[in-house]
Design a protein around this nucleic acid. Sequence first.
DNA 1: ATAGGGTTAG
Length: 745
Amino acid sequence: MFQSISQCLNSSTSTLFHARQAHALFLKFDFFSNTQLTTSLLTLYSHYLPFPQLSIILSSLPQPTIFSFSSIVHAFARSHHFHHVLGAFSHMGSRGLVPDSYLLPSAIKACAILKALKPGRQVHGFAAVSGFGSDSILVSSLVHMYLKCNRIEDARKLFDSMSERDVIGWSAMIAGYSRLGLVDKAKELFSEMRNEGVEPNLVSWNGMIAGFGNAGSYIEAVMLFREMISEGFLPDGSTVSCVLPGIGNLEDVLLGEQVHGYAIKQGLELDNFVLSALLDMYGRCGCASEMSRVFNGIDQTEIGSLNAFLTGLSRNGLVDTALEVFKKFKAREMELNVVTWTSIIASCSQNGKDMEALELFRDMQADGVEPNAVTIPSLIPACGNISALMHGKEIHCFSLRKGIFDDVYVGSALIDMYSNCGRIQLARRCFDLMPSRNLVSWNAVMSGYAMHGKAKETFEMFHMMLQTDHKPDSITFTSVLSACSQNGLTEEGWNYFNSMSKEYDVKPQMEHYACIVTLLSRVGKLEEAYSVVKEMPFEPDACVWGALLSSCRVHHNLSLAEIAAEKLFVLEPDNPGNYVLLSNIYASKGMWDEENRIRDMMKNKGLRKNPGCSWIEIGRRVHTLLSGDKSHPQMKEILEKSDKLSIEIKKSGYLPMTKSVLQDVEEQDKEQILCGHSEKLAVVLGLINTNPGQPLQVIKNLRICDDCHAVIKVISRIEDREIFVRDTNRFHHFKDGVCSCGDFW
DNA sequence: ATAGGGTTAG
């Protein structure tokens, strides 16, 4: 019977039921006096019961020994229940039992994993007074604990005090420095170790490789990897998964494939870490099909691989596939974690699926997954993209409630969001309240000011930034130059442009030339702009020619327009906008034959004018309005309100700018067409559905037209509303009958 | 029964 109970307790197929049955026998026959049997029973129990229940059983033991506790502590450690390890450990103290040198390392490990510095120090103190101070295993675990708690100095002091420093201690220290990105220190230690005659093992190498990878020194990491192989080490799963991110970042797909082949040969493709690292590598190298092949070959998909796959799909522009895969695994009731949700939310907000991103955020919370400091800045851009100010504010509040507010990514995302929703002052306040800022934060606030046409503030921020440790990059200059071009500041524009490479070591790129060309051509210096285009150090792209073409329309320069259009028809033959611009120029000159020729070109290519489209957030809903589309359920009210407004607007002396309608139609019809412009529909819809005095924000997928601009100015006065309109170019802030752009755009 | 290393989200 003794034997059979023992066998039953130690069998891997035994369940909680068996444990309870055995427990009854223990009570009946008083087996608790047998230490070995008691230990087996507790070990079995510890697979099924959380600490509080186990502790009751422990308390009921007539004479618990150190072994009773050991079995439980180690079982918890094996099953990663580190809170319970600490619980059992302190319970043991209260029962008057003194831990031995076998038990202490487990307790210390638990402190390390939980980053519980205080209990860690207590155990350290106990070990010191109990004479374990020279036990190398124990001291190694203490070194590790201090490293995990980010107390590198304490760890180093302890490590230096060790009389016999073995490869484990060295490797721990190397990995500790590596994790903090202190690769020079890690390297130093690595050679010191060899000088002391301790040979590195796989773990030491892996620690080094991971460190260089973490620090972004991918080339060094790959070099170490090769060096390690040349010294005769066989990379294992850990090596492979810490070198692959570097290979992915370098987009060295050939090396990636070699490593993949090696992983297969070594049977490492069953290792989940290796799998997700492989998926990530192929994703970064742009090998979507190879990535999918790896993913589809997986027997049992683990969450890390799913996450890596989703991100890889999105990286390669396959958002719809990512969403499908996500839904498939959610339906399979796979347990999704915060990384999965964040990844799919980011895919949506980065790929124009903003409403989906907001919905997914709700689903995530309904699923009981807690968003974190990475989720928030992945979601916030979705609000900015569609000017969903209320949603944006809600998420801002959410992050404040959750205590996620001193994160530099969150702060920068909020700056972008508020400025994309027209609230540049709120954006600035977020910037001012940030406890620390990086280049992204500075760029965000400057790009906000630039979008709002606030050149003075953009320059102010630029010079404030120079007072800090941050150096301007190419994005910084894009903002500064576009602020110049919004305001026609030719001289300042040239000064900043010339200072880029001279003073700040930033080479002007395509977008900077595009800014300068826009700036010059918009103030009418079309010939100067054209000579910049001709003298650029690289082939001008569609943005540059497009800037020139749209200014030609404003300044009625037909010959240059034809040159620019010809280039554009080659560079982007399927962009209807270019044909429309050129045909509009012909139309404005009454050249109807040429106009028709261009229209025919479009028709032959099967191109149609991009329909004007505007969005407006009303309450918690975002409404989409298409130009000339009558399908909105409130269309009748919109038209009624438009008619009333028309009367008022005409009374104020405004005449419809029929020049904006460049079609060969009767004057009467032109007025009709103007009424259908999507931005006007959106403004009117906003007027109907919001309280008097409430500001409105509208975004438009094309540039705002002259007539809408004039009409919205009047509306802002007679309806006493602030109206924010974001078009593809900039912000227009209408208030009291004037617009922040000063009618120059 | 005790010690060291890895992947995936901005």
